[in-house]
Amino acid sequence: MTIDRTPVTVRTVPADLPEVDALLDAYLDEREATFPSAQGTYSRKRTPAVEFTPPRGVFVVAYDPDGVPIGCGGLRRITDDGDDVRFEVKHVFVSPAGRGRGVATVVMDELERAGAALGATAIVLDTNDSLVAAGAMYRSRGYARVDPFNDNPNATAWYRRPVGQRP
């Protein structure tokens, strides 16, 4: 198996751009089609674009060398927890054309950098255990499983990592 590690460019963009809509539609379509039936119906809830506007958050898109959008992710401020200033990762997605190229890693790198710049002391996220590769990536980045911090009906796993802590 050959993995194309062609460099990608990650840019912070407004979350209401047409390319963001196209990526998020593809993400929601894929999740709905692959959602574990034992968990019920997939909720297609999308985080409002305004929540990804600084200083409340950011949204990033990864582009291939030809300028084609191949991945994305957002970061938004959520309610603090004790002394933690928390920002939550949302909607990390890599299109099939971008998979195996390290796109999710560079998207997460940029979201974590942005969180630190916005004053986060912890980055949190939720996912579904059926997304095995995503869970493995988060754990490899130093995220530890925590008790649920939201009521996302699609989630089965919640993670937290202090800002600045790397494995």
Rank of each mutant, 00 (worst) to 15 (best):
P162Q: 13
R113C: 04
A157F: 05
R101I: 00
A62P: 02
T121D: 06
T53F: 07
P148W: 14
D16Q: 00
T2E: 14
D64M: 05
E112S: 01
N128H: 14
D151Q: 14
G67N: 08
D83H: 10
A144D: 15
N152W: 11
V13K: 11
A62E: 03
S130Q: 05
A26K: 07
P148C: 15
A114R: 12
P18A: 14
T2L: 14
G135L: 04
V13T: 12
T12E: 15
A120T: 02
G164R: 08
G100D: 03
T2H: 13
G115L: 07
K90Y: 09
D4T: 01
K90L: 01
A49M: 03
T9E: 09
R76M: 15
P162I: 05
S95G: 00
A26W: 11
I70A: 06
D147R: 15
A155G: 10
Y143G: 01
P153K: 14
G73N: 02
R161V: 00
P54W: 13
G102R: 12
A157T: 12
S37Q: 09
V107N: 04
S37Y: 00
R46A: 13
N152I: 09
G100C: 06
R44Q: 08
V89T: 13
D126P: 07
Y143R: 01
G142H: 10
A33W: 06
D29R: 15
D21F: 10
R76F: 13
P148A: 15
V106Y: 03
V58R: 14
Y143I: 02
V60I: 07
M137H: 03
H91A: 15
R141C: 00
E30W: 02
A155P: 06
G98R: 05
V163L: 02
A134V: 05
S130F: 12
F87I: 01
P18I: 09
P153T: 13
E88L: 10
T156H: 00
D83E: 14
N150V: 08
G164P: 06
N154Y: 05
N128S: 10
S140F: 03
V20R: 02
I70G: 02
G74N: 11
S140M: 05
R11E: 14
V163R: 05
D21Y: 11
V103M: 10
A104E: 07
M108Y: 04
